[in-house]
Amino acid sequence: MGYTLNFAVVWRNFDRLLEGLALSLGLAVISILIGAAIGLAVAFALISKYRAASWPATAYVTLIRNLPILVLVLFAYFALPQMGVRLDKVESFVAVLAIYSGAYLAEVFRAGLLSIPKGLTEAGLAIGLTPIQIRTTIIAPLMLRNVLPSMSSTIISLFKDTSLAAAIAVPELTFQARKINVESFRVIETWIVASALYVATCALIAALMRRIERRLALPR
């Protein structure tokens, strides 16, 4: 093999990778925050006894979960403008990832909601709370604690999915790595460093989530 490793070019361009990583994280955070709000509303709709609520929610979740996210990304960026919806590439990617995470988080939240004893809702009703007050003060906080462990892996997946923004030239980490690769021909070095950044970030997210989980754990 005539290939000797030389990381010099990669280090010289390391700030570009970091900028890319920062953008990746930014995309993930905004999308997941919007997605969590969507997911929460949709989860309550999924378990609703009213078909007018549960049916559209089920349709949304099923549709999104059966579409590859890359197809959604390309559709939003290339097809929507033809239909008169004009978004820049970052906006269109955030919209897609938010809608996508909404569907996955809705499923996570739904499972969390189902494990909350009905008696708590009834105790809330019995002291005169309205159904909405019960959702915000009792159900949602308990559901969140239930789902933190499985939410951690969903969030990590969604963070990794930001790499698909490279397909529409959003300058996040994967896009920056590909550029450096093309400019420098240091193929192996570039992708090793980019991979290391992804792995380290995922490990950090997991650690952060475990911390939150411990912080919110109920004393017993």
Binding site: E122, A123, G124, I127, G128, Q133, T137, I138, L142, L218
Partner: peptide, 30 residues
């Protein structure tokens, strides 16, 4: 419902709130 109080077989305390917060919730929100 706030005019009648109810106690259940299974207590049904809100597990993420202290005893005090459990009692305060209805006083604050209702």
């Amino acid at each position: 419902r706030a005019l009648t109080g109810m106690a259940f077989q299974q207590f049904n305390l809100f597990p993420h709130m202290t005893a005090e917060a459990n009692v305060m919730l209805g006083l604050l929100k209702v």
